[in-house]
Amino acid sequence: MVENRPLSTLIAHAILWMGIAIVVFPVYLTFVASTHEPAEIVNGTMGFLPGGLPLQNYVDALFTGTKQIKSTPVLQMMGNSLVMALVIAIGKIAISIISAYAVVFFRFPFRMFFFWTIFVTLMLPVEVRIYPTYKIVSDLGMLNTYAGLTIPLIASATATLLFRQFFLTIPDELVEAAKIDGAGPMKFFRDVVLPLSRTNMAALFVILFIYGWNQYLWPLLVTTDASMDTIVYGIRRMIVTSDAQTDWHIVMATTMLAMLPPVFVVFAMQKLFVKGLVETEK
């Protein structure tokens, strides 16, 4: 910066740390609750420091779930979430990269029509077609299946646009050099386009994994069988309006577990995460 004023720097740091405190506090409190006895939580004597059960609530949550309202063990829910997040992320990347490849590297009848068909889906989020989509999934017999949880969410205009944008930056000469080197379209895709797209795919994967893991409305619609609950939706089923019946200590441990994988991904792949976030919004 232009000036160098120690006081203003100090204030800036203070404001930033306050911001971080605001962001961290709810999670910290949840963590605290996840280490306390249920009674301490319910009668309000929990306080602001971790309790005496560092692991017990987690073990109970993972292998048993809530008891008053019988829930699926959280480990199973996490398994469901993992399958959903992975299939959605990988599926979206796979079908988007091949369709973008087709649109960019070939000329074929109705090319632009197809492109716009994909593009317009940006304007059709699940929320505006809740019941008809549910009905189709139900008619196809995909309720309470992994296929039903994932396939309808697998089309992606955003990912297709991103790959298209990237493919347009591949120099023509590289394609020509490959042609002279004897590479056909599939060989070029495998040997050149895929390796060059690695960073983009990884960045997309981070964003789409989070997207898939955090799905809420869709599992709510297509899964009725508790054994198919994803963790994000499962938490909601553990909380009942009559407080006495909610096993808050388990709910809190489950909440921590629900945040863990996507937050871990963000921390582990910061650069890719930011890249993915910025590029998918273009």
Binding site: E173, L174, E176, A177, I180, A183, V192, P195, L196, R198
Partner: peptide, 19 residues
């Protein structure tokens, strides 16, 4: 096809495979 002509080409921007 280019690959069947038994020619080799050097491009202005070299067109090296970056990866």
């Amino acid at each position: 096809e280019p690959k069947d002509r038994d020619i080799a080409m050097v491009f202005q921007n070299y067109a090296l495979y970056p990866h």
